[in-house]
């Protein structure tokens, strides 16, 4: 099912750069000035930070994942920097959906054109449905259902990994909103295509692949795990080949019905182009902000544009999934 833009979606004429290479992409009816998106959980904690990411060039921005009730998250240490990426065990800290809604309204009235994707975490259809309608009402241009937070409790993870529940949650969200529904998937799940299939059958418009991998680090001098949550989500460089494979598989399986967004370890245009070639219509960026700062969005976007020009393409769409067509 493909929905039209929905509440406040951007509909403006296609913007082409001087040379005629269009960076603009369409994602489930939303228009993104370029295919870079701020990943959930990174700078998405307030209207002002979302606005800062958008004005730094993000084609769309995603809020921190919100829960119905406030969550404190885990105590420090909540991150470990590795050579190959980053471990985080934030534990979904957020003020709860309702107190966050003014931030969404404030972002939407800021005049910035990058669509806002509202990320939610819910463990039953009733909650999912309430949250999705509230977030749409506040002005979110899309709802992203996170069914893959690596820092949820073991019970939550056991629950959310089930196809049946994913189907119910997506159906509930689909029934409650007219804006596009994104579903954010885990990187490793033996039944990934089945899980994704359940989401697609239930009416998802976009599959986001992927969330962080579960991992851990131990300090050899302290002789104990560093993260207070013991395990955390591994993002950045190390995640890229895993998430890339997920995008490739999901595009192969569902590319005719829905769109895919690639997430994991995007630092430069080459990473982004790999995801596009694997079948992603856009890429999300999180961890790279540590190394590249907020300019990462503009730099990746202009790098993609340079690639299109060098290779003789005129739009991003032309290369989406090209690695499958060979």
């Amino acid at each position: 099912m493909r929905t039209e833009g929905g509440v406040g979606a951007e509909t403006r004429p296609s913007e082409r750069s001087a040379g005629g290479w269009a960076l603009e992409v369409e994602l489930a009816g939303l228009r993104l000035a370029n295919p870079t998106v701020l990943a959930s959980g990174v700078l998405g904690t307030s209207a002002s930070l979302l606005a800062r990411a958008a004005s730094s060039g993000a084609g769309a921005v995603t809020t921190k994942t919100l829960t119905l009730h406030p969550r404190r998250g885990n105590p420090n240490p909540v991150v470990v920097e590795l050579d190959t990426g980053l471990l985080n065990s934030m534990g979904l800290p957020n003020p709860g959906l309702e107190p966050f809604l003014p931030e969404i309204r404030a972002y939407r009235s800021s005049g910035l054109r990058s669509p806002l994707i509202g990320s939610i975490w819910a463990l039953n259809s009733e909650e999912a449905s309430t949250m999705a309608s509230m977030i749409q009402e506040a002005g979110a241009n899309a709802v992203e259902l996170n069914v893959s937070c690596p820092n949820a409790s073991k019970d939550e993870l056991d629950t959310i990994g089930s196809e049946q529940l994913v189907r119910e949650l997506v159906e509930a969200v689909r029934r409650s909103v007219s804006v596009p529904v994104f579903v954010k998937l885990p990187p490793l799940h033996w039944g990934l295509t089945k899980l994704a299939g359940a989401a697609v059958d239930a009416g998802a418009d976009v599959l986001v692949a992927t969330n962080a991998l579960r991992g851990m680090a131990i300090d050899v001098r302290a002789r104990r795990p560093i993260l207070s949550g013991i395990t955390g989500g591994l993002s950045g460089r190390a995640l890229k080949p895993v998430a890339l494979r997920a995008v490739y598989e999901l595009y192969g399986e569902f590319g005719d019905e829905i769109q895919v967004v690639g997430v994991g370890g995007v630092q430069d245009w080459r990473d982004a182009v790999e995801y596009l070639l694997a079948g992603a219509s856009a890429v999300e960026i999180g961890t790279a902000l540590i190394y590249r700062g907020l300019s990462v969005f503009r730099r990746v976007a202009s790098g993609i544009e340079g690639y299109l020009r060098e290779e003789g393409f005129h739009s991003v769409e032309e290369i989406v999934g090209a690695a499958r067509r060979g």
Binding site: T45, A47, S48, L49, V79
Partner: peptide, 20 residues
């Protein structure tokens, strides 16, 4: 209040300024 210290998590934003 600081959490990640790396500029990602948003915990230490100076209210409504977008500054970490």
């Amino acid at each position: 209040r600081m959490r990640c210290g790396l500029g990602l998590c948003g915990s230490c934003e100076v209210e409504s300024t977008g500054m970490r």
